[in-house]
Design a binder for these strands. Structure first.
Length: 493
RNA sequence: GGUCUCGUGGCCGAGUGGCUAGGCAGUGGUCUGCAAAACCUCGUACAGCGGUUCGAAUCCGCUCGAGACCUCCA
């Protein structure tokens, strides 16, 4: 199959034509969350970005296997000998089993991504479920001569690897070994590592370390970067199409993944590396230490001191889609409120389209040209902001048709509906928001209908004192009446 | 300190050598008893300085400012 999709490859720092290794199959691996606390919004942006990418690949007809791991063990807290992994540290603090922590936050993670309308990946492997495979890969790397054991721990020998593979370590992130050495010299105490740039494949567990497994070298746990190499190659092969993650993982995590895979399998594991950009909050980086953080549920409920009001997951998703995945994006009340209005306008136009009466011919809109512009935007490295700009062109046309200033033929109407549904719901992954104020309470709906009817009577009698009184009193309750030709609707502010 | 990215109109945010992105806000208008809502109209911005070019927001250099990575981080 042939498509015109181009993707930005971090490895070449260029947009490249997307040609899967074995079309129509596409293997995509995305680095998932470490489940030791609630998933935060920055994480969500990354996964929403890759959800978009997944959805568009599916839309184009690719048979995608999307693998996203759950890191439930192994990421070291620090580089010191007494290093412990994040899961076990948290477990001790809360006096529960590590897997209890893992379960709690995994459930939260799934719940939040579901609210954002993310499709689940095809495989969601866990690090603790692949200890055996990780041990095997370490053994392979040792056998190939790129790792060494010290006191029960195993380290990757970066310099030997680099000598063998033409100074490739750093090719993804643009690092040079010499510079890295210079930068790390002062941090290097009496490490077991031969070189400061080496990294752990297996760590011997200290007596207090809870999560531990048997291995040929010691009772311990796997190193930081190994799980992704192991699980991606297990489920997608030694060489696959797309590997993604946040750009903060580029170095060292992804760099180390390349080295591990290449050391074990002698081939580049990934054809297209894709990295998403960071999310900031009120102009500053999200950080727990400064308190500038926001959890998804705090955003949805409005229960936070960072933003002026609550925002629904779908509005947030739309907001994210208005920026390109490789650009940084800032969360603020003003920006989100603007997105909310735009989203409502788009959704309103979709409803308007359904109700349009078809005419003989279509005027003032070139459907074919519009369609190809939409696809061109998505084909250009998933440029959703441009796509959305084109969607608003269609909105404008729909409004004009509704006003009788343009017309649409029946076949074009059906085609436009189909395309808009594809772009808005299938690809961007938006959905119609559930009824907000009205609809959730029959009693309130009934009462409101009575009040609105009474006001209508008063207006017809030209008793504006009464009709305005009704309107003002409702306004005081934060209920806004909206008059239109079709009648009066209401909304809670 | 090293490596790198970025600085676009009131706000958000695309674009990247010549041709109005888009959304929100704002302006003026239509509608309305009045308003709100809705719909229509309008807006010539690209940090500063210098250079390349017939032509630069777009390329090059410098200055200023912001951010990322270099340590766990999506």
């Amino acid at each position: 199959m042939d498509t015109n999709l181009h993707v930005y490859n971090s490895l070449s720092a260029k947009k490249e034509k997307f040609e899967p290794i074995k079309a129509p199959f596409v293997g995509m691996y995305v680095c998932g969350p470490t489940v030791y606390s609630y998933v935060h919004l920055g994480n969500c942006r990354t996964f929403i970005s890759f959800d978009l990418i997944y959805r568009y690949l599916l839309h184009l007809g690719y048979k995608v296997r999307y693998v996203r791991n759950i890191t439930d063990a192994g990421h070291l807290e620090n580089d010191a000998d007494e290093g412990e992994d994040k899961i076990s540290k948290k477990a001790r603090l809360e006096a529960v089993e590590p897997m209890e922590i893992v379960q709690k936050y995994t459930l939260d993670f799934h719940e939040v991504l579901d609210k954002f309308n993310n499709l689940p990946p095809n495989i969601e492997p866990t690090a603790t479920g692949h200890i055996v495979e990780q041990i095997d890969m370490i053994q392979d790397i040792i056998n190939e001569g790129f790792a060494y054991e010290v006191n029960g721990s195993v380290y990757f020998d970066v310099e030997t690897y680099n000598a063998k593979f033409g100074n490739e370590y750093g090719k993804l992130s643009g690092r040079k070994i010499d510079e890295l050495m210079a930068g790390t010299r002062d941090l290097d105490g009496q490490s077991e590592k031969r070189s400061p740039v080496d990294f752990a494949l297996w760590k011997k567990a200290s007596p207090t370390h809870i999560m531990r497994w048997n291995s040929p070298w010691s009772v311990g746990f796997p190193g930081w970067h190994l799980e992704c190499s192991v699980m991606s190659s297990k489920y997608l092969g030694d060489s696959f199409d797309i590997h993604g993650g946040g750009m903060d993982l580029k170095f060292p995590h992804h760099e180390c993944e390349i080295a591990q895979c290449k050391a074990a399998n002698h081939q580049d594991p990934v054809k297209y590396w894709m990295h998403t950009n960071m999310l900031t909050l009120n102009g500053a980086r999200m950080s727990k230490s400064t308190g500038n953080t926001l959890l998804p549920n705090e955003l949805f409920t409005g229960n936070n001191d960072k933003l002026e009001k609550a925002f629904s997951p779908i509005v947030v998703r739309f907001f994210m889609m208005q920026a390109h995945y490789r650009s940084p994006l800032d969360f603020s009340s003003d920006a989100l409120m603007a997105a909310e209005k735009g989203y409502l306008r788009l959704m309103g136009a979709l409803n308007d389209l359904e109700e349009l009466k078809p005419a003989e011919t279509t005027t003032a809109f070139d459907l074919e040209e519009w369609k190809s512009k939409c696809y061109a935007a998505m084909d250009d490295d998933f440029n959703t902001p441009i796509l959305i700009a084109h969607l608003f062109e269609a909105v404008k046309f729909i409004k004009a048709a509704k006003d009788g200033k343009a017309s649409i033929a029946a076949t074009d109407k059906a085609a436009l509906q189909e395309l808009l549904n594809a772009f808005v719901f299938d690809i961007l992954g938006l959905e119609k928001e559930e009824q907000q104020a009205s609809g959730d309470d029959e009693l309130v709906d009934g009462l409101m209908k009575t009040i609105i009817d009474l006001r209508l009577d008063a207006r017809q009698r030209k008793d504006y004192a009464t009709s305005d009184r009704i309107r003002d009193h409702l306004q005081n309750l934060n209920i806004v009446l909206k008059d239109s030709k079709e009648g009066t609707s209401w909304e809670k502010e």
